[in-house]
Computed example of a mutant assay.
Amino acid sequence: MEELSGTVLAGRSFDPIRGRVVVADGRIEAVEETDTTSTDIIVPAFVNAHTHIGDSVAKDAAAGLSLDEAVVPPDSLKHRQLAAADRSELVSAMRRTLRLMRRTGTVSCLDFREQGVEGARALREAATADVADAFILGSGDPAVLDVADGYGASGANDADFADERAACAERGVPFAIHAGEPDATDIHPALDYDPDLLVHMVHAQQAHLDRVAEQSVPIVACPRANAVLDVGTPPIRELVDHTTVALGTDNVMLNPPSMFREMSYTVTRFDVTAREVLRMATTAGAEIAGLDCGVIEPGRRAALVVLDGDSDNLAGSADPVEAVVRRATELDVKRVV
């Protein structure tokens, strides 16, 4: 049994409790108010809800390129780099990114893994016990579902994904699809698949939002990547008002997979509260993938980040939730449980 003391951001509302979290056999046994002198801040570990980990072989190679030039299949720089990468190089690069994520507070990522069955197998090999978990959304032939946790489609304008959607429904695994990144033309076609998850929705309009709410489709927003690729600004306030919204860092070749950066960028650029953003970075992603984490409450998996509330950066903050979302960085992480 282990006790973590300090200010605990507990439950779905992240209420600050001065007290302790009791952990036994990898699960939260109790969250208790108690006297403590600890200045630590204990938060749920992050879930990065949209990544492309394979891009780890091409970090910063696409700087300054457009969306089409950087990442759109099949002829973009990204896909040429992936095709040229040696398997051992790819596995090593992905493992390093997953290790970085684990060290900096991310317990799991939802990864769109290119290169079909072999790509999914490579990510399985990379996701060893000492790194962040990878929830794999595979690509290519529906046979990828023998290896992956679900399917990740590039976009409804790229191909017909009816067989892949049907295979996911038959197996009871999620079907996710990019939509509304370069423009709005693929949003209604994506929704026609009745997906379990939409990614981006930068150009979502009211008719799309109404369908999203009616179909109860969660969305992953990736605002930093959208800015880097200059595709527009997602209507995050409107998205949050209509459905569950999670945060993702998207392509590793464009952005480091830092949920601290993503949270700070989102709360300062959009009309959302710090609590809403913290929920997007923790609870929402966990719920989308059916992961037993994202909330600090008894019975949950003990996936926690301990921040040094007395660091030179965080000391003196008036509000621990605001401190975590607006101010904290990877340097404030004392421990990941």
Rank of each mutant, 00 (worst) to 15 (best):
G19W: 06
G105E: 05
V131P: 00
V23P: 02
I177M: 04
V21H: 02
E276W: 15
N313I: 13
D86V: 12
G172F: 01
S56W: 00
I236Q: 04
E89I: 15
A221E: 14
T7K: 11
N255S: 10
R95I: 14
R211W: 06
T329I: 10
R18T: 14
R261A: 08
C168H: 02
I17N: 01
A127N: 01
V321A: 02
I28C: 08
A284S: 15
A166T: 12
T128N: 08
P256V: 07
P298Q: 08
V333G: 05
D332C: 09
H200S: 08
M263F: 08
E164T: 02
A328P: 13
E276A: 12
L67M: 03
L229A: 04
D192S: 07
N251S: 00
T244D: 05
A169I: 14
V272E: 11
V57Q: 03
L123H: 09
V337R: 11
A315P: 03
E238I: 11
T249C: 07
D40G: 00
V321R: 05
N255P: 03
E89F: 15
E89Y: 15
A132M: 00
A179G: 08
E181R: 12
V228E: 15
A221M: 13
L191K: 05
S311N: 04
A24G: 07
L82D: 00
T128C: 05
A246C: 05
S317I: 12
G248F: 06
N251C: 00
L65N: 08
G116Y: 08
L65W: 12
A63Y: 12
Q81H: 09
E181G: 13
A127M: 01
V305S: 03
L247N: 11
A132F: 01
R171I: 00
S88P: 07
M280E: 02
H188A: 15
E214H: 09
P298R: 07
V220L: 01
E181S: 13
A281S: 12
L291G: 11
D332K: 11
V252T: 14
E214F: 06
Y151H: 11
M94Y: 03
A176T: 01
C109N: 07
D192Q: 04
P257S: 15
A63C: 07
T185H: 12
V231W: 05
I42W: 10
A246F: 11
D25N: 07
D111Y: 02
E170K: 04
A274W: 08
A323D: 04
L239E: 09
G140M: 04
S311G: 04
V22N: 06
L123R: 13
G105H: 03
D196F: 08
A213E: 14
A61F: 09
S92A: 15
D241L: 07
T273R: 03
P234V: 10
A70S: 08
L145V: 05
A162H: 06
N48P: 15
A143W: 05
E32Y: 11
S317R: 15
A274M: 04
A167P: 01
H188G: 13
R326S: 09
L247I: 07
E170R: 02
A58T: 15
T34K: 13
D75S: 09
A176C: 00
I41C: 07
A213R: 14
D133A: 08
F135P: 01
S264M: 04
E164H: 00
R335N: 12
F46Q: 04
R279W: 12
T268H: 13
D86R: 13
A120P: 00
T104M: 06
